[in-house]
Design a protein around this nucleic acid. Structure first.
Lengths: 344, 344
DNA sequence: CGAACGCGTGTGACCGTACACATTTCTGCC
DNA sequence: GGCAGAAATGTGTACGGTCACACGCGTTCG
């Protein structure tokens, strides 16, 4: 009943109030305050209210570092990412951040600068030094798996946007299926000479899309040709297009992502070819801009939000000790627009 | 000289090695280990080596939480962001992350879900509860400033991509200048009836670009007309275009960003109009894809990387107690491509 | 009617590190 | 060789929480 202000009245520094300050103001022990903070069941409503009032009065915030120290739980999830500026990863990360925050976790995001083993290991090492409780890898390079195995991670982790690959830690969009859908679409339209511009060789997704492409072609008994290995950028698509279109020995292209497809269409225009009149094009990802390309791009949509959401769900489940994980791949969806047409 | 393994040999949990374990293995006191970690100058090279060996042997990692607790420095910089999936913010954040990590800081990124005051405050509140040492705001909504002022932030902060606005905490690209350059370019090409499609009203950047546009027009004694307020998306640009092009009472458009410009060009095509033949278009941002639009887009380039880099530089300086800050705005650059031409 | 129990609350110890200060060891010099 | 002073290293304490356990009290039950 004596609401004395627990001000320490020190000279210089204004120390942030701690749990004992709150206790003093509320007239209880610090342990009771702690119980309120961790909403323990057995507290008298009246006491609860007094503590809450004291917290509000002092503007008290629990010190996360102290908490982390004593519980040895950082409440941090690490994200190892490559290409965070790209639409796909960025979208997934956004979903992850939201879901994580709602669950009381914060994110520690690290970008790897190159796909070299050293860079990947440095990134993982950095995250482990943050003592993250779990790890999400959105850097679908092949070498990531080596690095993960080598470092003997002790925390649950999940890799995104990769293929199955036999590891039990992957949460994946069925890229092979997506690529097959895209390729089948072109075949169904009567195309028999189909090119593929792929992503970088060390990207698992690129590999998967290429596999899907090749398998679909071979199932249809069509001639396969060596895919071009690109770097995901529109510029690459453009220059590759200029080169390829000098010999026009194909009537359709399945491009590994929408950006490269955009560049390729640019090259078609410059080469005086019409899309889809002369060349049909399918992309991958369905970035929001794809619907407004010239012409609007037929592409394979991935649900990046769903992926991110499920990643957190999976990890939180594992952190709670649940073992069953839903491993069904997320299904991509072919979006047919105007960049593909029946072969004339 | 007695390299006894400092294994606690406990039954269940394998406790991570701490500074005392290292000390025991190295045969020194824990304080000496601490000195090594904080590279104190006065340590005998031999001792240094012994400690380092012990660290390596045990795979010891300093506990960040304990450090943060005792130093009351979280070594965390908060980022309040909107639209992290967009190219600009994403690029800046990437640069920030890299620079911060190099300086030994980690990032805590929070996305605000809406531009409402409550959402902004919740985001700031969340970041403050992480006890961030500094704050970067990449959510250039007008209300952000209100929220910041209201919450009486005690940490140094900087807002990105906004305009000067009189606050001393802004690091800004001169959006007004960029918009003027874009508009002047159109005027120089002989256009007199120029439209503007702007971003959302509560975005400071949108406002600034609009101001630049209007000022340049009025300086040239040209008729101004009310800008259309968009939402930055390609789809909006498309639908706005379809609407506007029904009355073709303009020959040029300055669009608030590249995505909307893309949508607008789509609308032009559908309306049977040629770009730049019938309509000249200038965008803003210079996203990597802009060079491959149909036609390649004349736009205003912003150096997002530079912005991010300087944000960290500024904050670190302030954290070190330096007061002078380089407040020169980053200058945007007009990139002339093929979406603009002389009025016929 | 006393022991057992549950509820609500308080006490002591500890998490892993950095800082202030104390102490030992080494170095140079008269 | 002894001493000052610097260099190198060690000891106590605090940071702000949580956990295990102890405690007082009222209720229930044998």
């Amino acid at each position: 009943m004596t609401p004395d202000t627990g001000r320490p009245a020190e000279p210089g520094r204004v120390r942030a109030p701690n749990i004992r300050d709150v206790a003093r103001v509320a007239g209880v022990s610090y342990q009771t305050v702690s119980r309120v903070l961790n909403d323990s069941p057995s507290i008298r409503p009246e006491t609860l209210q007094r503590v809450r009032d004291a917290i509000a009065e002092l503007g008290y915030r629990p010190n996360q570092a102290a908490r982390a120290l004593v519980t040895s739980r950082s409440r941090t999830i690490g994200v190892l990412a490559a290409q965070t500026v790209h639409y796909g990863p960025a979208t997934s990360i956004h979903a992850i951040e939201t879901a994580a925050r709602e669950a009381g976790y914060r994110l520690s995001i690290t970008n790897i600068s190159s796909s070299e083993s050293a860079s990947i290991k440095a990134g993982l090492d950095y995250l482990m030094s943050q003592s993250v409780e779990a790890l999400i890898v959105i850097a679908p390079q092949v070498r990531v798996f080596e690095a993960i195995n080598e470092l003997q991670l002790t925390v649950p982790y999940v890799t995104l946007e990769a293929t199955g690959l036999g590891t039990s830690h992957s949460l994946w969009v069925d890229q092979v299926m997506g690529a097959r859908q895209a390729t089948k679409h072109l075949i169904d339209l009567g195309h028999t000479e189909i090119m593929h511009i792929s992503g970088p060789q060390d990207w698992i997704e690129a590999e998967a899309r290429m596999q899907g492409f090749l398998r679909e072609l071979s199932d249809a008994d069509l001639r396969t040709r060596a895919p071009i290995l690109g770097d995901w950028t529109a510029s690459f698509g453009y220059y590759a297009g200029l080169e390829l279109l000098r010999y026009r020995d194909f009537s359709a292209v399945f491009v590994g992502n929408d950006q490269m497809a955009l560049g390729f269409m640019h090259a078609c225009r410059e080469s005086g070819l019409s899309v889809p009149g002369d060349i049909s094009i399918v992309g991958f990802d369905d970035i929001p801009e794809a619907a407004h390309f010239s012409p609007p791009l037929t592409t394979v949509r991935q649900n990046f939000v769903e992926i991110g959401r499920r990643a957190i769900e999976l990890l939180l489940g594992e952190l709670r000790g649940e073992t069953e994980m839903s491993h069904d791949p997320v299904q991509p969806e072919l979006i047919i627009r105007e960049s593909t047409t029946r072969k004339s």
